[in-house]
Structures are given as structure tokens and as C-alpha cells.
Design a protein around this nucleic acid. Sequence first.
DNA 1: GCAAAGATTTGCT
DNA 2: GCAAATCTTTGCC
Length: 226
Amino acid sequence: VTGGPDGRPPPDRSAAQATVSRTLLEGDTLVAARALLGARLVRDPGRLGGEPRSGRIVEVEAYIGREDRASHARMGPTPRNQAMFGLAGCAYVYLVYGMHHCVNVVTETPGRPAAVLIRAVEPVGGLSGMRAAREAVRPGARRVADARLAAGPGLVGLAFGLDRSMTGVDLCDPASPLRLEVAPADETPPEVVSSQRIGIAYAGEPWTSLPWRFVAIGSPSLSRQA
DNA sequence: GCAAAGATTTGCT
DNA sequence: GCAAATCTTTGCC
């Protein structure tokens, strides 16, 4: 290893885990959605404090193109959804029902709106921070099992301290405060099953029936039974 | 300018 | 099983 222009050694990134490849996310959204199962969602604490929060992605949904009547991109680019028309690998975080923040991974090429909604994560690290976030929103609420801390799209946002300011963050950059890391090399890839997307009855057919939801079979952290 | 519904979660009936 | 919480964005007047 040679030194940098200023003579100092380059920063040591050998300990950092690799992030999900942008090339993968720039391709077919259904392929990317399946591939994201098993990957890790990681949040550096920053001003939130505590240890880094991380978890294994176990449930996702695909939203593809302007023609998808269930997609936020169905009415063309707007201030809210413009991230979906941007660079693959960036985050699109939106507020739903006035209280829940949900995070998507943008896919495909700029100009064509597509994204993968992260619907559920199996907590791996930083669980105390996830519990603290929950307690801050609902003081005295019933205590849930560790596996249920991020078992739904709104809960992922809460557990990882996300809001719309995270929109545009590059999830493929190892230096980002929020990123996607590949699964440990010794981990067996999850067995995957697809089914209909949830909560999109307004879209009508054929959109409501498309099998664009993917879950890791047997995970205790799914938003509902596979 | 205003009314309506939403890629949800929770707790009570 | 059902309705409330909560506020942004969209659709129509």
C-alpha cells in the first residue's frame, strides 16, 4: 500500500463491511428486491447516540415504473417522490398516515422511477437504541420481543431513527450514516417466497395481485405471516 | 382554497 | 375485528 499525495497513509477501510453493489440496484427491481433479503440495514448513531443500529432485511416490496398504480411515482415526478426518479442506491423516505416514516431503496436508472420498500428487519445490533426510540414515541407502551422491534415498514423507520431528511442518502456508500451492507460471508442466504403487496387496495388490478412482496421464510420479524 | 385519503400501528371491544 | 391517531399530498371546486 502506497501513501497518499500528502505522504500520510490512506484511511484503513479494511475493517468496514462491503456495501450492496449499485450495479445490482441499477438493474431489474424484482431481482434487486430478492437480493436485498439477508442484507444488513445499518445506521450510525450520530447525534442519536448509543451504538450503531443494524438488522437483517427480511421483507421488501417492489414499486416499478410510472405505470404501477400502487407507486408514489404514478402521477409523475413531484417534490415528494423525485428521489424515485434519481440514482439507484439512494434512499427515499416518506411520511405515511401523518406519523410513520418508511424507507425505500431507489432502483433502476435515472428517469425511470422504481424502488424497493424495506418492510421488515430482524434486529442484530443497537437494540437498546431501538427500544429507546419506541419508548420516546409511546411512553409506557407494552414491551415487545426483540424480533418485533422493526417488524413493519413504519417500525423500521422508528427503530432506525429515520425521517425525510434521510432521502437522497447514498446507501451504497460505506461512509454514509445509513447504508446497506452485504450479509456475512458465512451466512446462508434466506429462502424466499413472494406474495401480494400489502395496503395498496386503492391501486386496483392487476397491481394489487402482482407478487411483488418478498419475504425471508421463517423469520420471526415479518410484518405478518408469509 | 378545502376536503379526502394514505406503501401503518396500536389498543380496546 | 375495528377505529383512532396525525399531517402531508393529492384531487376537485
